[in-house]
Design a protein around this nucleic acid. Structure first.
Lengths: 130, 130
DNA sequence: GCGCATTGAATGCACGTGCATCTAACTTGG
DNA sequence: CCAAGTTAGATGCACGTGCATTCAATGCGC
């Protein structure tokens, strides 16, 4: 609670910012150059790949991928335009949507994963594990 | 190097993203509501406050605050417009600029710091220390 | 069954960012 | 001393984001 603890917390936060920015920039750059995917888009594909039937509700997907509702809505639109995912209406609740990976989406993810893992190894060696 | 290590690294990265996004959103929201400062702007003021004579070269400031050169350039412009910092030419190298905290800037930082520290305590308790 | 609050998702808007590029100022080799 | 290369910072541009709002579908109380 004291000044010292607060400053220690601020220092931790400062470190966290540094790690995040370095990794995120590297991932965005390399993934978009090599696979035309942003780091967020990759993250969404990854969540879907590991989901039951490669399909998740928008809200769930947003939480898992650390995206706000509006960011996710547009991101999924982009992925859909590129043919990597499809939106499917939910029968129980017609407000909800399921997002599902297409074959192309699964292929793109498989293609991009080694790149992402390599960047994490190269850039993250002194950042991760936290 | 193996698949397991890579996946562990990816999990760490996923955690890091979550922590960063949660804290950054909270800080941005509260700091801009209460003090009309973004989290990045606060970070810059903080770096200056702790610098020799409250003054740093742009490049140094950029590294310390984890900002790209272009982001920093515009951010400093905003702070200057608001009267919180001033740009001063460097006499030895007329390409360089020093950015210095004004009295108003120091005051705004002092005002905002408790808010930032509180958010870090509230939101960061389960995120920090890493 | 009918309003009323709530929830899921889409969208207008303003804004901050990265990338590429530009200009000016310094540096270095000849 | 000059030309070529390098470095500091500013800027045009496209783009992704958050916030606030909107619209439709659902649940809940009466």
């Amino acid at each position: 609670m004291g000044r010292r603890d607060d400053d220690a917390l601020a220092a931790e936060w400062h470190q966290l910012m540094g790690r995040y920015n370095r990794l995120m920039c590297a991932l965005d750059r390399e993934l978009s150059l090599a696979h035309d995917l942003s780091a967020s888009e990759f993250e969404v594909l990854q969540q879907l790949e590991h989901a039951e039937e490669c399909s998740l509700r928008m809200a769930t997907l947003g939480e898992n991928a650390h995206l706000t509702q509006s960011a996710l809505s547009r991101l999924v639109s982009r992925l859909e335009t590129d043919g990597l995912v499809t939106r499917k209406a939910c029968e129980n609740d017609r407000r909800s949507l399921f997002v599902a990976l297409t074959d192309a989406g699964r292929a793109r993810y498989a293609e991009a994963r080694p790149t992402q893992r390599r960047v994490l190894r190269d850039e993250g060696s002194d950042c991760l594990p936290v």
